[in-house]
C-alpha cells in the first residue's frame, strides 16, 4: 500500500447524500481485472451522456477540478455494495482522501486498506466545505494524517478520528496481512481449542 502522510490538493464537491457504490462503479465493470485503470469506470454513468461524451453538468468534469485528490460528499457516502472496485475507481482516478459526515461501513474499511483515507467531519463543517468548493472551484484542502487534521480553504483546522492501527498502516504504507501473519501461533492455539469445544 502507498504511504499516506500529508496531502495538499484540489477537492471536488459531490453535493449529494447517500451516493451508493453502484453509482461509483456500475456493476457491469465489476469483473474488470485490477490491472485495468478503474478510474475510467468512476461515476461512469453520471459522468457521461448517453453517447459517451463527458457531461459538462457533472461537477467532476469541470476543468477547475482537474487533478483533484480529495472528494467531499454529504452523509452516507459510498453506501450499499461491498465492492472494493468503488475504492479502486476513486484511487485510480487520483483520489487519496474522501471527506463526508459518514460513510458506508464496508467502504470505509476498504478505503483504509487501499490508501484512500476516509475522513469523517461534522455535518455542518462538510456543508460549509461543499459550499466553499462550489463557490471557488479549484480550492485546496490539506489533510494531515500525522496530526489528524483537515485544513479547509478558509484556513480553519478540524481534527478527525481514525483507528490508531489503520493510521499506522497508512503512514508507513504497510498492510495488515503481514502483521497478522506474526500472530499465527495465537491463531493456531485458538483454533485447536475452538475446534475441541465446537464439534
Amino acid at each position: 500500500m502507498e504511504r499516506f502522510q500529508r496531502l495538499d490538493a484540489v477537492a471536488v464537491p459531490i453535493a449529494r447524500p447517500n451516493v451508493d457504490t453502484d453509482q461509483i462503479t456500475p456493476a457491469r465493470f465489476l469483473h474488470k481485472p485490477r490491472s485495468d485503470d478503474h478510474g475510467n469506470y468512476l461515476f461512469h454513468d453520471v459522468r457521461r451522456r448517453p453517447d459517451g461524451t463527458p457531461d459538462p453538468g457533472f461537477v467532476m468534469n469541470r476543468p477547475e477540478y482537474a487533478g483533484a485528490q480529495v472528494i467531499v460528499a454529504e452523509r452516507n457516502f459510498a453506501c450499499g455494495s461491498s465492492r472494493e472496485n468503488a475504492v479502486w475507481a476513486l484511487y485510480d482516478h487520483g483520489f487519496r482522501a474522501a471527506i463526508a459526515p459518514s460513510f458506508g461501513d464496508i467502504f470505509a474499511a476498504n478505503g483504509l486498506k487501499n490508501g484512500l483515507l476516509p475522513v469523517r467531519l461534522p455535518e455542518d463543517v462538510v456543508a460549509g466545505l461543499i459550499a466553499a468548493l462550489e463557490a471557488e472551484p479549484g480550492a485546496r484542502v490539506q489533510v494531515d494524517l500525522e496530526a489528524q487534521t483537515v485544513t479547509l480553504p478558509d484556513g480553519s483546522v478540524h481534527p478527525f478520528e481514525i483507528d490508531p492501527f489503520s493510521r499506522h498502516c497508512l503512514l508507513n504504507g504497510v498492510d495488515e496481512l503481514d502483521y497478522t501473519g506474526t500472530l499465527a501461533p495465537q491463531i493456531d492455539a485458538f483454533m485447536n481449542r475452538y475446534g475441541r469445544e465446537n464439534r
Binding site: 461491498s82 472494493e84 474499511a109 476498504n110 487501499n114 492501527f165 496481512l177 497478522t180 483454533m191
Partner: peptide, 22 residues
C-alpha cells in the same frame, strides 16, 4: 457480514479478521 476484497484475502490467509465491535 460482508467484507471487501482485501479483507477477503486476509480471511483466506488467516481465517480471521480485525474488527472493532459495532
Amino acid at each position: 457480514f460482508g467484507v471487501g476484497m482485501t479483507e477477503t484475502t486476509h480471511v483466506l490467509a488467516h481465517q480471521a479478521l480485525w474488527q472493532r465491535r459495532p
